[in-house]
């Protein structure tokens, strides 16, 4: 069961990565990141169950808290970005690249 959970978690993680890279919409990108964290959590819970030790659950609890703080930052990021460019297209934000140098 543990391995199944872990494999599922790896798959979700990969899907998250794919989403993160492939999508231009920053909100979707953000959700992909959240998916990454959830994937890790899923494994941790499984490990916890397997070990019959709730430490891993604590860890995932903490990760959820971290995710929450990331969420706070991302929310403000959306605000800042949208305020500046009225768009949440990741491709638009490239003035720092060499194209404009």
């Amino acid at each position: 069961m543990l391995k199944a959970y872990m494999i599922l978690s790896i798959l979700l993680f990969s899907i998250g990565v794919v989403g993160l890279i492939s999508r231009r919409n920053i909100i979707v990108i953000y959700m992909s990141i959240e998916l990454l964290l959830n994937a890790v959590n899923l494994s941790l819970i499984a490990i916890s169950a397997d070990m019959a030790d709730s430490s891993a659950q604590v860890m995932s609890l903490i990760i959820i808290a971290i995710a929450a703080s990331e969420a706070a930052l991302f929310m403000s990021l959306f605000v800042v970005l949208f305020r500046n460019r009225a768009s949440l297209d990741a491709n638009l934000f490239d003035i720092l690249g060499n194209k404009h140098a």
Partner: peptide
């Protein structure tokens, strides 16, 4: 989970 996450991305 997998299908919904694929839909999500």
């Amino acid at each position: 989970a997998i299908v919904s996450s694929i839909v999500m991305i």
